[in-house]
Protein backbone atom coordinates (compact mmCIF):
# COMPACT_ATOMS: atom_id res chain seq x y z
CA UNK A 1 0.00 0.00 0.00
CA UNK A 2 1.13 3.53 -0.73
CA UNK A 3 3.21 5.31 1.89
CA UNK A 4 2.26 8.92 2.58
CA UNK A 5 4.42 11.38 4.53
CA UNK A 6 2.20 13.85 6.34
CA UNK A 7 4.03 17.03 7.39
CA UNK A 8 1.92 19.03 9.82
CA UNK A 9 2.80 20.80 13.05
CA UNK A 10 -0.72 21.09 14.42
CA UNK A 11 -1.46 18.00 16.49
CA UNK A 12 -5.20 18.00 15.92
CA UNK A 13 -4.91 18.40 12.15
CA UNK A 14 -2.25 15.68 12.11
CA UNK A 15 -4.46 13.32 14.07
CA UNK A 16 -7.51 13.94 11.86
CA UNK A 17 -5.83 13.68 8.51
CA UNK A 18 -3.50 10.87 9.62
CA UNK A 19 -6.31 8.68 10.93
CA UNK A 20 -8.49 9.28 7.91
CA UNK A 21 -5.70 8.34 5.54
CA UNK A 22 -4.99 5.20 7.56
CA UNK A 23 -8.65 4.24 7.37
CA UNK A 24 -8.34 4.41 3.61
CA UNK A 25 -5.49 1.94 3.83
CA UNK A 26 -2.51 4.26 3.44
CA UNK A 27 0.62 3.83 5.48
CA UNK A 28 1.10 7.20 7.17
CA UNK A 29 4.45 8.67 8.25
CA UNK A 30 4.48 11.83 10.33
CA UNK A 31 6.86 14.79 10.40
CA UNK A 32 6.19 17.90 12.49
CA UNK A 33 8.47 20.44 10.80
CA UNK A 34 10.19 21.02 7.48
CA UNK A 35 13.63 19.80 8.56
CA UNK A 36 12.22 16.56 9.88
CA UNK A 37 10.22 16.16 6.66
CA UNK A 38 13.33 16.44 4.49
CA UNK A 39 15.27 13.96 6.63
CA UNK A 40 12.39 11.49 6.75
CA UNK A 41 11.72 11.72 3.02
CA UNK A 42 15.35 10.82 2.31
CA UNK A 43 15.30 7.92 4.77
CA UNK A 44 11.86 6.45 4.11
CA UNK A 45 11.24 7.27 0.44
CA UNK A 46 7.46 7.87 0.71
CA UNK A 47 5.21 7.61 -2.36
CA UNK A 48 3.68 11.04 -1.73
CA UNK A 49 4.10 13.97 0.64
CA UNK A 50 1.32 16.15 2.09
CA UNK A 51 3.02 19.35 3.14
CA UNK A 52 1.59 22.03 5.40
CA UNK A 53 3.28 25.24 4.33
CA UNK A 54 3.45 27.14 7.63
CA UNK A 55 5.76 25.02 9.72
CA UNK A 56 8.26 25.72 12.49
CA UNK A 57 12.04 25.29 12.09
CA UNK A 58 11.88 25.09 8.28
CA UNK A 59 8.69 26.09 6.52
CA UNK A 60 6.94 24.06 3.85
CA UNK A 61 8.10 26.26 0.99
CA UNK A 62 11.76 25.77 1.83
CA UNK A 63 11.33 22.06 2.61
CA UNK A 64 9.65 21.50 -0.77
CA UNK A 65 12.41 23.36 -2.59
CA UNK A 66 15.04 21.16 -0.93
CA UNK A 67 13.11 17.96 -1.58
CA UNK A 68 12.59 18.83 -5.22
CA UNK A 69 16.20 19.73 -5.90
CA UNK A 70 17.66 16.61 -4.25
CA UNK A 71 18.06 13.66 -6.66
CA UNK A 72 16.79 11.06 -4.11
CA UNK A 73 13.56 12.87 -3.31
CA UNK A 74 12.93 15.06 -6.38
CA UNK A 75 10.48 12.60 -7.96
CA UNK A 76 8.19 12.27 -4.92
CA UNK A 77 4.94 14.14 -5.58
CA UNK A 78 4.19 16.89 -3.07
CA UNK A 79 0.74 18.35 -2.34
CA UNK A 80 0.92 21.73 -0.61
CA UNK A 81 -1.66 22.50 2.08
CA UNK A 82 -2.17 26.14 2.97
CA UNK A 83 -4.35 27.63 5.66
CA UNK A 84 -6.52 29.81 3.46
CA UNK A 85 -7.11 30.51 -0.20
CA UNK A 86 -4.67 33.37 -0.48
CA UNK A 87 -4.37 34.76 -3.94
CA UNK A 88 -1.09 33.59 -5.41
CA UNK A 89 -0.57 30.69 -3.02
CA UNK A 90 -1.26 28.19 -5.76
CA UNK A 91 1.30 29.81 -8.06
CA UNK A 92 3.75 30.08 -5.21
CA UNK A 93 3.29 26.40 -4.39
CA UNK A 94 3.79 25.28 -7.98
CA UNK A 95 6.82 27.51 -8.22
CA UNK A 96 8.31 25.92 -5.11
CA UNK A 97 7.98 22.59 -6.92
CA UNK A 98 4.69 21.27 -5.49
CA UNK A 99 2.75 18.98 -7.81
CA UNK A 100 -0.64 20.05 -6.50
CA UNK A 101 -2.19 22.27 -3.89
CA UNK A 102 -5.20 22.29 -1.55
CA UNK A 103 -6.57 24.58 1.15
CA UNK A 104 -7.50 23.98 4.75
CA UNK A 105 -9.92 23.17 6.27
CA UNK A 106 -9.34 19.97 4.32
CA UNK A 107 -12.16 18.68 2.19
CA UNK A 108 -11.20 15.07 2.47
CA UNK A 109 -12.82 13.64 -0.65
CA UNK A 110 -11.30 16.35 -2.80
CA UNK A 111 -7.86 15.80 -1.30
CA UNK A 112 -8.23 12.04 -1.73
CA UNK A 113 -8.93 12.60 -5.43
CA UNK A 114 -5.74 14.62 -5.77
CA UNK A 115 -3.71 12.03 -3.88
CA UNK A 116 -4.97 9.21 -6.08
CA UNK A 117 -4.35 11.15 -9.30
CA UNK A 118 -0.74 11.79 -8.31
CA UNK A 119 -0.13 8.23 -7.12
CA UNK A 120 -1.45 6.78 -10.38
CA UNK A 121 0.51 9.22 -12.49
CA UNK A 122 2.81 7.44 -14.93
CA UNK A 123 6.41 8.08 -13.97
Amino acid sequence: MAKILLVEDNEMNRDMLGRRLQRRGFEVLIAVDGAEAVAMAEREGPDLILMDMSLPVMDGWEATRRLKTAPETGAIPVIALTAHAMSGDREKAIEAGCDDYDTKPIEFTRLLGKIETLLNRPE
Partner: peptide
Protein backbone atom coordinates in the same frame (compact mmCIF):
# COMPACT_ATOMS: atom_id res chain seq x y z
CA UNK B 1 -13.41 25.22 13.56
CA UNK B 2 -11.04 22.87 11.80
CA UNK B 3 -11.48 20.33 14.56
CA UNK B 4 -15.28 20.62 14.70
CA UNK B 5 -15.65 20.15 10.97
CA UNK B 6 -12.90 17.56 10.66
CA UNK B 7 -13.82 15.33 13.59
CA UNK B 8 -17.53 15.37 12.84
CA UNK B 9 -16.66 14.26 9.30
CA UNK B 10 -14.45 11.51 10.68
CA UNK B 11 -17.12 10.31 13.07
CA UNK B 12 -19.60 10.13 10.21
CA UNK B 13 -17.26 7.86 8.30
CA UNK B 14 -16.59 5.74 11.37
CA UNK B 15 -20.18 5.21 12.45
CA UNK B 16 -21.03 4.36 8.88
CA UNK B 17 -18.39 1.62 8.92
CA UNK B 18 -19.72 0.39 12.26
Amino acid sequence: MNAIIGYSEMLMEEVEDL
